[in-house]
């Protein structure tokens, strides 16, 4: 009979857990990248001057924000076989989390865009900057500052969302923990360890974002 609480479990299964954490990070990074792509597309649609496109963008954002992400993981993994499309578990999870996260990113970008004042766009135009240059050199850097904290939170919630990929057997951290739990029957210890690893990852990311925010935007005090 093993003891009920066994922190040494962490050491014994360190390789599995490390591999799981690495997969979690890779999955999280891919999902964040996908959510940025979906988010920018969603925002572009939402703000389109063509009514049907704007409707499409709004529907995307509202539909995805009001339904659970697990639905999309199941839907993409099992469901699309009917249409003849088959994704790997990893790809399904990336797409599901990316599509869902994109809806939130679209809202964040919209907020940031409205935060850059009309005055800034006027000043850029008065200097003869074309819309593209104005976007790249004047608007985007300021949008990034406004959106940065919210995007940081979004990255973290996407990272936490990757745990759901365990249901379709993506070998990420939670899946590995389950395997260890099933083998040792030490669910209490292993999920405690699992939780601590997530906690550490989230704390590292949070600190990192604060640091980057300070370095990049610290000097821009006060908008003009």
């Amino acid at each position: 009979m093993v003891s009920l609480f066994d922190p040494a479990l962490f050491w014994r299964y360190r390789h599995q857990l490390a591999a799981g954490a690495a997969t979690t990070l890779a999955l999280g990074a891919c999902a964040v990248a996908a959510s940025l792509v979906f988010g920018l597309c969603g925002w572009a649609l939402k703000t389109s001057r063509h009514r049907p496109l704007a409707w499409l963008g709004n529907t995307y954002v509202e539909a995805l924000r009001n339904t659970p992400d697990l639905l999309y993981i199941y839907g993409l993994y099992f469901g699309l076989t009917q249409v003849g499309v088959r994704f790997s578990a990893f790809t399904s999870a990336v797409l599901a989390l990316g599509i869902q996260g994109g809806a939130y990113v679209a809202e964040i970008v919209r907020g940031a865009f409205t935060a850059v004042t009309r005055d800034q766009r006027l000043a850029a135009r008065a200097l003869g900057l074309r819309p593209w240059h104005s976007l790249v050199h004047v608007e985007l850097p300021q949008m990034l500052r406004v959106a940065f904290p919210a995007l940081g939170n979004q990255v973290i919630s996407t990272l936490l969302g990757t745990a759901l990929a365990s249901v379709i057997a993506v070998p990420e951290l939670t899946y590995q923990s389950q395997i260890v739990g099933d083998a040792t029957y030490q669910y209490f210890s292993i999920f405690a360890v699992d939780a601590v690893i997530y906690l550490v990852l989230v704390q590292i990311l949070t600190r990192l974002f604060h640091f980057v925010e300070h370095v990049w935007f610290g000097k821009w005090r006060g908008t003009v």
């Binding site: 005055d119 000043a123 008065a126 935007f217 003009v224």
Partner: peptide, 17 residues
């Protein structure tokens, strides 16, 4: 035209970044 006519705004509108 915008190259030939410079403009100064009441609230400066400098780029804060």
């Amino acid at each position: 035209v915008r190259k030939r006519a410079g403009m100064i705004f009441q609230h400066f509108n400098l780029f804060p970044h």
